[in-house]
Design a protein around this nucleic acid. Structure first.
Lengths: 201, 201
DNA sequence: AAATTGTTTAACCATGTGGTCAAAAGTAAA
DNA sequence: TTTACTTTTGACCACATGGTTAAACAATTT
């Protein structure tokens, strides 16, 4: 077995991830992926039989990096407020490094929900424990009572939205690129603050 | 001048809006739009010279309905907390009736930012006044100090995100369609509460 | 009624796309 | 070297798509 095989397969996956994330499934072109991988288009079909297949391979990789952090955090034994802090920091940092993923996910989610949901299933994320913890801390008067499905959604929303709506925000608030970067970094403490204050009894 | 002309033009716009919003620009097919409008495909090009043109026409309509509410609200003389309440109610109701618009906007935003931004420019939304009001109320001890670009983004994020991430949320929290509808309605008071609590001094 | 103008259609075209195939090039074992 | 196998390529195909065109149809004007 030659090593060149594994090599080109990786090259293809890297190129495919770039193109799929930047353009979405429909607008991504097999030719462009081949070009970027420095190979012939037919070779794409040799390694991954179809565009659909190639996309799935790419998506698996992305999904594999997406959920573990969330799950690990939810299962840790930190206090709710601390979980929020950690979560926001981890999430915003990850988004800062991969700003195209949310749009990519949303697109996939719309054009083919099953494709995404099967990875959620596999991730084993389960909010029951979180709700229990919230109820416990609320009973002890540490935070106000709240449903997990609101707290979690609110927190993730505030992290993700600025990334997907970047052009709008930059435009309305007249931010330069540098200012927008600063804004994103400020949001870390800002979001944490916002949630903590909202949870106070 | 016959009335049939205006009629078909409207029929085309209606059909085009449905298809574009449901599928996005790339995946939308001129043939499908023609079919849904009950006309020949060539007629699309007779009224709107190209797909690009047709899309712009559709987008103008959507954008025209999107911003006035926001602007009107920001310019009203309600207290911040009341603006928030109104805004969330208006926004969530609008989203409930047009759940496909956010994804549509995000897609457009990604593939062709200028197309969207020019409508924002025209809308004349200006957050300066909002910031002034916030500063004023904060100085009087009515709310805590906060930057408008965080308060506004946070609020919109919490409204929009549940709509675009619906499949994920429904899946993780194991909600039926009916339960999800109930969840969305609950969010109205929930989001308002969340923001108000976070703004308390 | 004839002519003019606006509306609608069926058939067609050019192009780009995902995908295929047979043959070449490279590699390892006999 | 020969053989068998894998990897890579260029040329090609079928098909869908946005767009065009010439002709038919409808309505309005003269």
């Amino acid at each position: 077995m030659t090593t060149s095989g594994e090599n080109t397969e990786i090259q293809i996956l890297v190129a495919a991830r770039e193109v799929f994330i930047a353009k979405g499934y429909e607008s991504a072109r097999m030719q462009e992926i081949a070009d970027r991988a420095g190979i012939n288009k037919a070779l794409l079909h040799y390694y991954f039989r179809s565009k659909e297949n190639l996309f799935d391979a790419v998506f698996s990789e992305v999904a594999a990096h997406l959920f573990p952090a969330v799950r690990q955090l939810l299962e840790s034994d930190l206090a709710i407020t601390e979980k929020i802090s950690f979560f926001v920091k981890i999430y915003l940092t990850a988004l800062h490094e991969n700003p195209y993923i949310p749009t990519f996910v949303i697109n996939t989610l719309n054009s083919n929900p099953e494709r995404f949901l099967k990875y959620i299933q596999k991730s084993g994320i389960n909010p029951m424990m979180l709700q229990k913890q919230i109820d416990g801390e609320a009973a002890r008067g540490l935070i106000r009572p709240i449903k997990a499905e609101h707290l979690l959604v609110n927190t993730i929303a505030m992290c993700v939205f600025p990334v997907i709506a970047r052009p709008i925000i930059q435009n309305i608030f007249q931010m330069s690129d540098a200012e927008y970067q600063a804004y994103l970094e400020l949001r870390q403490t800002e979001v944490i603050d916002f949630v903590h204050k909202s949870l106070a009894v």
